[in-house]
């Protein structure tokens, strides 16, 4: 019986591992060359040339990685901290539902369409094609997400807890240092990571607002595809999957909305993200 159960588990693991196939495909394409049909293993030449090209920045990928890290890191850091703080203010307001509802609008309109709607103004103010311009455009849809995400932290129960702390004598600074930050740090870590991913995965808006002058990893990936260079695209794709894969290996709760043990969530179950993307 025990053996049967073990076999069943193994079977399901095999089914699950099908979900890794896209990544395995990328790994394969990133280490082969002279890849003419029907070469697969025997006829294909395995090489690390594409990875060396990345390392030597021969194809601009290393620069793209640095740019993406800088852009997504700064967008995530600023949007998540601002979102955390603002979600607290929103949660304390009597019209919090209305205020929270507003955040869904810029977040759920497709970023590429936001790019279309904003392009004129960005050109007009001279922000188009600049790092700052892309940063601002991305921030404007990552920030609402951060507010929606952290609204789960500033729930009714947490507000009661805060009030209890205040009535025990905690004034503003101590309230933040003694209660809000220690309880919110796990949330901040997850929120920061999810904001990072939003910016890290973004293509359409970056392309429109950046007009090709802010070549992030997503832009490079599409360029490689358009240049019919699947090996470069595979390397770029794997580089993009790397940060989330590392975090997934460390702790998959970063993909979930609620943080275990924080004890502050309005939604009784774990939900990945406050919404799609």
């Amino acid at each position: 019986m025990q053996k049967q159960k073990k076999h069943a588990g193994l079977g399901w693991s095999l089914v699950g591992s099908l979900l890794v196939l896209p990544l395995l495909g990328l790994v394969y394409v990133s280490v082969v060359e002279q890849w003419r049909f029907p070469a697969l293993f025997g006829d294909a030449r395995f090489t690390l040339r594409h990875w060396q090209a990345f390392w030597n920045n021969g194809n601009g990928l290393r620069g793209g990685l640095g740019l993406s890290l800088l852009l997504s890191g700064s967008v995530a850091l600023s949007a998540a901290t601002a979102g955390f703080w603002m979600a607290g203010r929103v949660a304390r307001h009597p019209q919090r539902r209305f205020l929270l509802g507003l955040a869904y609008f810029p977040y759920l309109v497709a970023p590429v369409i936001l790019g279309v709607l904003w392009q004129h103004w960005w050109v007009r103010f001279g922000w188009s094609g600049t790092f700052g311009g892309v940063f601002l455009a991305q921030w404007l849809f990552v920030f609402p997400y951060a507010v929606l995400f952290f609204a789960g932290f500033w729930n009714d129960r947490f507000r009661k807890l805060l009030f209890q702390a205040r009535s025990l004598g905690a004034y503003r600074r101590k309230l933040w240092l003694g209660v809000v930050l220690p309880m919110g740090l796990p949330w901040l870590a997850v929120g920061l990571f999810q904001c990072f991913l939003l910016s890290w995965f973004e293509y359409g808006m970056t392309q429109l607002i950046g007009v090709g002058k802010v070549p992030t990893l997503t832009i490079r990936t599409v360029l490689f595809v358009q240049e019919a260079n699947p090996h470069g695209a595979a390397v770029a794709g794997l580089l993009m999957a790397l940060p989330p894969l590392v975090l997934l290996g460390l702790n998959r709760s970063v993909f979930l909305r609620r943080v275990g043990g924080s004890g502050a969530s309005a939604i009784p179950t774990d939900e990945p993200h406050a919404g799609p993307r």
Binding site: G9, V15, L19, L23, T221, M240, P244, L248, R252
Partner: peptide, 27 residues
């Protein structure tokens, strides 16, 4: 029984950007 083993694998596609997933499926 044993289907719970599927659960950790479900997180893997979340690491893929739409661009990357599209290219991987194309490959």
């Amino acid at each position: 029984p044993g289907a719970g083993r599927l659960y950790p694998w479900l997180f893997v596609p979340l690491t893929l950007a739409p661009v990357v997933a599209a290219f991987a499926v194309f490959a």
